[in-house]
């Protein structure tokens, strides 16, 4: 082995020794990139490495833990946040449909207008927080400007998803619900709309930053449709 390497050193011209690493490095990087790309595509969502799977940065950080969750809130260091009296702070546990109001009525679940945020945040939340200050400014200072929320869950082109019938079906057929934090939900007798979201969105209430949990690929849609006797005609979704 050593001898072979010595012979290499002797016989390989200098320019090859320089060119090979120069070309090889980018090629290797490109290959690695392509592989990651393919795996990502196969999974239907970004790889959970280097923070890629963490979901996009939002213009105003919106912790679903604080809004939808009920667990104790933690700060960046992992310590429980306390109120003025020293009690642990819990999430307020809002129903999903409190903000995503049209989820039980129409195609899109709906993003609340910033006025709705301000309705609560006029009084809730400490004034020194930059984001809340900005929100108040936006919500109360006339109608200039909009919050450019980044979409987390996006279906491929030419797919039309209507929330309302899905919520309606799952609330009446809890056995079809997946990913619910409540393991007994399949046999529950009464289910609220907010309890079925997890089927596609995962347990949002535990996410500080929302990320995509399910691949949301067509196979998933079709499997569920077939299992539940829903139509599998192409134009059910593609138009």
């Amino acid at each position: 082995m050593l001898e072979f390497m010595n012979r290499m050193r002797r016989t390989t011209p200098l320019w090859v020794k320089i060119i090979v690493p120069l070309v090889g490095l980018p090629v290797t990087a490109a290959l690695a990139f392509a592989v990651v790309f393919v795996i990502t595509a196969w999974l239907g969502k970004p790889l959970p490495v280097f923070g890629f799977g963490e979901g996009p940065e939002q213009p105003i950080p919106f912790p679903h833990t604080a809004h939808a969750g009920t667990a104790v809130l933690v700060d960046t260091a992992g310590m429980a946040r306390k109120d003025a009296q020293g009690n642990d702070l819990h999430g307020v546990g809002l129903d999903c449909a409190f903000c995503h109001r049209t989820v039980t009525q129409s195609a899109s679940a709906g993003i609340p207008a910033r006025e709705q945020c301000v309705t609560c945040h006029k009084v809730i939340g400490s004034a020194d927080k930059d984001t809340l200050a900005r929100l108040r400014e936006l919500g109360l200072g006339g109608i200039e400007g909009a919050i450019n929320w980044q979409r987390v869950h996006r279906l491929p082109d030419s797919v039309r998803f209507v929330h309302e019938p899905h919520i309606r079906y799952l609330t009446t057929h809890p056995a079809a619900i997946e990913n619910s934090p409540d393991k007994t939900i399949g046999s529950a007798t009464s289910v609220t709309p907010a309890q079925v979201c997890s089927t596609c969105h995962g347990d949002i209430a535990t996410m500080t930053k929302v990320k995509q949990v399910e691949a949301l690929k067509m196979g998933q849609c079709v499997n569920c449709h077939r299992d539940n006797g829903a139509p599998t005609d192409c134009i059910t979704c593609h138009f």
Binding site: R101, S108, A113
Partner: peptide
């Protein structure tokens, strides 16, 4: 946010 329309507080319907 055309806030002059109260219905618009609820989007996408």
């Amino acid at each position: 946010s055309p806030s002059s329309l109260p219905e618009d507080l609820v989007r996408s319907a």
